[in-house]
Computed example of a mutant assay.
Amino acid sequence: MARPDIPITVIGGYLGAGKTTLLNRLLREPDGRRLGVIVNDFGSIGIDAELLAAASDTGVINLPNGCVCCSLGNDLMASLGLLRNVEFPPEQIVIEASGIADPSAAAAWGTSVGFAPGGVIVLASADSIGRQVNDRYVSSEVRRQLAGADLIISTKLDLCTPEQRLRALEVLDEHAPGVPIVDGSAPTDLVLGPRPQLRPPLRPQLRPPLMLEPGVERAVPAPEHVQAGYLRWSWSGTTVAAGRVAGMADAMRDVLRLKAVLDVDGYHLEVHVVAGRMTVHEVTGLRPGSRAEAILLCDDGLSVRLTAAFDELAS
């Protein structure tokens, strides 16, 4: 049986933004999924020593929580191949990009055979992003990183006054218009996306909002509410009409993250949506039926429209 495509998520951001801290948390809290992690060097993984296990003869480190790690070395494709070809491959691969690299370049490997796009997550230090985007030496790298982001995580908010937090969000809005912004406590399934094929349907759950939209009057949030408002949504059905799948793109426009498996007359399509961008590919070996789970901006109307779109797909 052919192995399913593995989504690739890239974590980027300038030096000191907190990429390794986020990576450590994802490894400690993988949300039940088997992650494959590629880093520049094993030493950059700061997780507790007891969490690390011995490396196999392939150069892959196996972790007791089911995740695997691999050193980047000089060839990213070789590292991806190592993870894809282990006996029990990961469900998702996370690449920690260098602080001066363009994470979008690494994310392009998500279009390669055997892989799927999993989004570009860019971290930005709230206490320094305003200075970095105007710095004569680093501004080009920082702006390029922000421009290629599907999701921005604003970090170091505890070091900022309310006014500084507001200014940081304005800078991010300016250089990455329309890109969702969350804080460093964003849960794993918001950073990496949901896993509908393994989860029972979940009832929607609201979180306090922090999403900033251009032109909307902003209120400085209290520190304990620096968290993006989002809604968890799920749907299940039987078979869907193949000719209608392409028309789903418009319904996905405001979806933050979605993963769906659609049963199309005997074969399945796997749909990934990251920040409104949809990719579709065929998969095999799945149980009958269609299912989807998404994370949406905190907007009840959007969840109603999305449910209607999927019901129409299956009618």
Results as ranks from 00 to 15, higher is better:
T284V: 09
T21G: 11
D102A: 12
P201C: 06
P223C: 05
L80C: 12
C69G: 12
L35A: 05
G237C: 10
T238Y: 00
R277G: 04
V304A: 13
A222E: 14
G118V: 04
I129L: 11
V240M: 05
V240Q: 04
H175N: 09
G229M: 09
A249D: 09
P89K: 14
V120I: 13
A97M: 03
V182T: 15
S236K: 09
V39Q: 13
N134A: 09
P103A: 11
G36F: 01
P288Y: 03
A101M: 08
V264N: 07
P214E: 05
G301W: 01
V191G: 09
T20H: 08
M1S: 11
G178N: 08
P103L: 06
S140R: 11
D311E: 14
E213C: 07
S125M: 07
V220S: 15
G99W: 03
E312T: 14
V138Q: 09
L306T: 03
L83V: 09
A17G: 08
I152F: 03
N65C: 04
G247W: 02
L297G: 11
L296R: 14
L302R: 15
T238W: 03
S185G: 15
A53Q: 13
A53G: 15
L192N: 12
N85L: 08
V133I: 12
Y14R: 12
T284M: 10
A54Y: 02
S154L: 15
C298L: 15
R232P: 00
T111M: 13
A219P: 00
L269S: 02
A108E: 12
H281G: 13
V255E: 07
M252S: 07
D127T: 13
D311A: 07
A101L: 03
Q205D: 10
S234R: 05
G46V: 00
L297H: 10
G289P: 06
T307C: 03
S154E: 10
E312M: 11
P89I: 08
R277Y: 00
T279P: 03
G193M: 02
D250W: 06
D5M: 08
V271L: 14
Y137T: 15
G46M: 05
F310N: 02
P223Y: 01
C69S: 07
R253N: 08
V304W: 03
D102E: 13
P204Y: 10
P200Y: 00
A222P: 02
L27F: 00
G119V: 12
Y14Q: 10
E96P: 02
A101C: 06
D189G: 01
A105G: 06
R207Q: 11
K156T: 00
